[in-house]
Write a protein that binds this DNA or RNA. Structure first.
Lengths: 152, 152
DNA sequence: CGGTATCCCTGAAGATACTG
DNA sequence: CAGTATCTTCAGGGATACCG
């Protein structure tokens, strides 16, 4: 979070995304949620985060529509935290971060967790392409800006 | 940044990535760099960030290998900040953030900047798939954990 | 213009104790 | 176990002045 001008009015979708999930903990919680964690205690153990902070972050993520709560079966009933569709759609972001980290932040022989297809066990990769299927790199693209309303 | 246990030893590549570029400003600077900005003043104007903070962030990004400096032509010669290959490889992350933001953080008719292929003008999309080309969603995947060294 | 050096302030995060 | 309630700390960030 940090006090900083909100980017929610920015016309750049990346900036708005960062405004919503660009803080330290949110994406780590989302990562754990993708990893199958649902319970308060699981998140806390995994992240080593203070309980009050975790509660705050979880509430924020719920407020933003990225997680939703559901009462558990047992008794006493607790809440469990599940990714919404909006949250699950952060999957490509996580994969992109993972792919980049694998490439640049690990020694070649260093142990790392891996993301695999459940059925085939194959590695997961990510491709940036045009609607009609051509692979593109950053230099093949251009940002079409929204014209400034008032003046040049 | 914020004081928090470093994740640089985490075995999850996503976590390490977040450790390196997961703070507020870094990805916004990188976004601007993809957008073609290279000069200190350009970043400052675009981001509305304090100069000392910008200088700090730029230095950190250079230290981490995401940006590199190069003296400019004119006189007096200044530095300009360019993405390294490591930095350019953050492109999928930016595209993923953008795609998610477009979908969930804009009203249908709301103005937004767009990312287009330079030559064809087509929209850019992102696909998560297996090595052999099958599209996958988050529920089709599984994390293969690194076994804990010491004990269960 | 492209920074560096200071000072100050805020609020995010930690620690801890408490409750159902 | 799943939180809530306080208190405190501290470093990121804003503002400003200054320098080459």
């Amino acid at each position: 979070m940090v006090k900083r001008k909100s980017l929610i009015a920015d016309t750049c979708p990346s900036a708005r995304s960062l405004d919503v999930i660009g803080d330290w903990w949110s994406l780590l919680i989302v990562r754990d949620a993708f990893d199958g964690l649902t319970r308060f205690g699981e998140f806390q153990k995994s992240l080593g985060i203070a309980k009050n902070i975790l509660a705050l972050r979880l509430r924020t993520l719920v407020d933003r529509g990225i997680l939703e709560t559901r009462p558990t079966e047992g008794t006493p009933s607790r809440e469990e935290y599940l990714l919404t569709e909006m949250g699950r759609d952060l999957f490509p972001v996580m994969v992109a971060l993972r792919q980049w980290g694998e490439r640049y932040l690990f020694e070649p022989d260093e142990k790392r967790s891996r993301l695999l297809a459940r059925d085939s066990g194959r590695r997961i990769i990510l491709e940036v392409k045009t609607e009609d299927g051509k692979l593109v790199g950053s230099s093949d693209t251009v940002i079409e800006k929204v014209p400034d309303d008032a003046n040049p």
